[in-house]
């Protein structure tokens, strides 16, 4: 058995010690990342047990939404399908991953209450479980991305390394947001509703369904100060063969560092209490 066979739990020994313990939890979760993977995989499999298409059901409904919105809104905005369809498809797929990872983050610790109250499993394990589960679902939706890129010929101009970098930043940032709402939702049960409202508002305020270049310059703050816009742009633009503004990656990197520092401090200070919140 390769699990840790030494366990030490102590009372508070100052702030530094709390950070050390939080870091130890993180390290233990990474050593046992396969457990998080098993749990995530189990979630995906059990949610779609008895259905033939499995997670592809969401992919299918997403695909229909992409078609509907792409055709109708493309007409309304008078944009060619050649430009609008891949834009909407990539937007819906990646923005969908962002919002569901955050929304499901609210349940991360609440759902794991049973396990957290009688085992010494790292708490980070459950955060990774939520993130990995959504990445598995994203892997299914890649079908839509590939279909659109190939059909409209963007696969030849797409800049894959930059898109991979954008995806990396997306995951890093979404993970900390997901963890933050997980901790806060454990303490306050009305947070999930607030989070759902925010992500819904974000879907409207962010250019998922509408083109950012249609916005008049005086409203540009809606783009520049919108984290969701940068998250999306980092992946979508390179896949469509467009350049990514340097300030987008700067924004994402800063957001990642500040966000993780914030979440890690919150975790270090609440780690002992989370199990009692549940």
């Amino acid at each position: 058995m390769d699990t840790a066979t030494h366990m030490l739990r102590t009372g508070r020994r100052g702030a530094l010690f709390e950070y050390q313990m939080a870091f130890r939890d993180l390290r233990a979760s990474i050593e046992r990342i396969d457990l998080a993977w098993s749990l995530a995989w189990h979630d995906v499999v059990s949610r779609y047990r008895g259905s033939i298409l499995g997670p592809l059901w969401i992919t299918l409904s997403m695909g229909l939404m992409v078609l509907g919105i792409g055709v109708l809104w493309g007409e309304l905005f008078r944009v060619s399908l050649q430009q609008f369809m891949p834009f909407v498809a990539l937007g819906i797929v990646f923005f969908g991953t962002v919002t569901t990872t955050i929304n499901e983050g609210c349940e991360t610790f609440v759902q794991a209450a049973g396990m957290l109250s009688q085992t010494s499993l790292p708490m980070f394990t459950f955060v990774w479980r939520t993130v990995l589960r959504n990445l598995i679902n994203l892997a299914h939706h890649i079908v839509i991305v590939l279909a659109v890129l190939i059909y409209y010929g963007y696969w030849r101009v797409a800049n894959y390394p930059v898109a991979a970098l954008g995806l990396f930043f997306l995951i890093v940032n979404v993970a900390w947001i997901s963890m933050l709402v997980a901790i806060v939702s454990a303490r306050f049960r009305d947070i999930p509703q607030i989070v759902a409202s925010i992500t819904q508002a974000a879907a409207i305020m962010t250019p998922v369904f509408w083109l950012p270049d249609r916005i008049p310059p005086r409203y540009h703050l809606i783009l520049d100060a919108n984290p969701f816009y940068h998250l999306l742009q980092g992946v979508r633009a390179p896949l469509m063969g467009l350049g990514v503004a340097p300030h987008t990656f700067a924004f994402l990197a800063a957001m990642g560092v500040v966000g993780w520092a914030l979440v890690f401090s919150v975790f270090a200070n609440t780690r002992r209490r989370i199990v009692h919140y549940l």
């Binding site: 066979t5 739990r9 009372g11 047990r49 199990v275």
Partner: peptide, 30 residues
């Protein structure tokens, strides 16, 4: 290892198995 002490310490050497709740982690749909 689930509860953190408020004061003092707990140290355990060896692999721990807690048979507190048999239904831990049982998923009825699986």
């Amino acid at each position: 290892g689930a509860y953190e002490p408020d004061e003092g310490s707990i140290e355990v050497q060896g692999h721990i198995a807690a048979l507190l709740d048999l239904n831990l982690g049982i998923d009825p749909t699986a």
